[in-house]
Amino acid sequence: MVNNNDAARPRAGSTVAYNSAPNSDEEMGRAFAVHPRHASRVVLPINARRGVWESICKLLTVCMLPVLLVLSIRIFLLGQYIIPSGSMEDTLLVNDRVLTTHGLTLNVGHLQRGDIVVFHDPAGWLGASGDGRFDKDDFLIKRLIGMPGDRVQCKGAGSPIKINGQTIDETAYIKPGVQPSSLRFDVLVPAGHIFVLGDNRDNSADSRYHSSDGDGGMVPIDNVVGVAFMICWPLKHWKRIDTHRDVFANVPNSNADNWKQETAQ
């Protein structure tokens, strides 16, 4: 009487050929029984190979998702810049890294006085002074002082700055010991532009110094690429950047027509 189990089991010395990969653990066991010294050559069963591939895919997903997330945030939401000069001291120090609104999160229509803005060089400012330049690009960073239509003026020699006739107290952010402006100026900010100053007024080639360029020292709003909101590095400088909106709280709305009439008299 033939034992079915014995018939199914390969005999010693016999040769069993597998023309395809084993499809089950049972077939895998038979393959090992026939070729115990060449077990490493046995192909994994299909279900085992599928499990390995799924594990590899999961590992790649776990590793790649954080990278893709960081890249997406960097490209579409936030910008990061290294401060190259002392023009914004003591608010921002040399080599500080700042995070800015960028791409999808930047709404230039919501710019306000006090914002610290990053913008493309509007009219060769960097070629003239090299002030506030970021490495390998043409960006600068300054504080937004005047909005479109604002009249911004200063008598110089330590006098305070006025916006639309309202004197503002800038001691909250100007570098200690530095006066609001040693230069005298009286300007009207044109439509689609902003007037910017560095917090370290004695070491900032800003809107005051470029009155003879194509935009009269003004920065086109279209040039703005971000608004700085946080210092992220070094860790000891980590903090949210204060825009000091309270400084401008009493500034009245601009009235360009009245200013034109006044200067014409």
Rank of each mutant, 00 (worst) to 15 (best):
P36A: 09
V251D: 02
A205K: 08
Q80P: 01
V42P: 05
L183I: 06
K155F: 00
G192Q: 07
A264E: 15
P122F: 06
G132H: 04
F185N: 09
L77P: 13
T100N: 10
G149E: 05
G156Y: 11
V52T: 03
H38G: 11
S182Y: 05
R208Q: 03
D202P: 00
C57K: 13
D121Y: 09
I241P: 13
G216E: 09
R9M: 14
I231Q: 04
W53G: 06
D25Q: 00
S211C: 05
A191R: 09
A123V: 05
S211L: 14
D215I: 03
M147I: 14
A17N: 11
P234G: 08
G86D: 14
G86Y: 03
S24Y: 00
L92S: 03
K155M: 14
D96K: 15
I231P: 03
Q179D: 10
P190Q: 10
K162R: 14
M28P: 01
A228H: 04
F76C: 15
L68D: 06
G149Q: 08
K175A: 02
A123G: 07
V52G: 03
D6V: 13
E54H: 09
Y173A: 02
H110C: 08
D202I: 01
R208C: 06
V178D: 06
H120Y: 07
I56V: 12
F119M: 04
Q153F: 00
A17V: 14
N200D: 04
H35L: 01
L78W: 13
V52M: 02
N107D: 15
F195G: 00
F248T: 11
N258L: 15
V108D: 04
A249T: 13
C57D: 04
A8R: 14
W233S: 07
V189I: 12
W125E: 07
K162E: 14
V98Y: 10
P148F: 05
R201I: 01
G51F: 01
I163C: 10
I168T: 09
H210Q: 09
G149C: 06
Y173G: 07
Y81R: 10
L188C: 03
A39P: 03
Q166E: 13
R11M: 00
V16Y: 05
N23S: 01
T101L: 15
G198H: 09
G130Y: 06
A264C: 08
D246F: 11
E27P: 00
G226R: 02
V225Y: 01
I56C: 04
H110N: 13
V108I: 08
D169S: 13
A205S: 15
S55F: 08
A256P: 06
V187Y: 08
R245E: 10
L106T: 11
D115W: 11
G103T: 02
R143C: 08
L92N: 09
G192P: 11
N223P: 11
R30P: 00
H102E: 09
V227L: 03
K58E: 10
A7G: 07
G127H: 02
V52D: 02
A123F: 06
A172K: 11
D131F: 01
H244S: 10
A21L: 06
P36G: 12
D199N: 10
R41F: 05
K142H: 14
V219D: 07
D6I: 12
D215M: 04
Y18G: 01
A128L: 06
A123I: 02
L197G: 09
I56N: 01
L104W: 14
S129G: 04
D115P: 15
A21T: 05
G130F: 06
N3R: 12
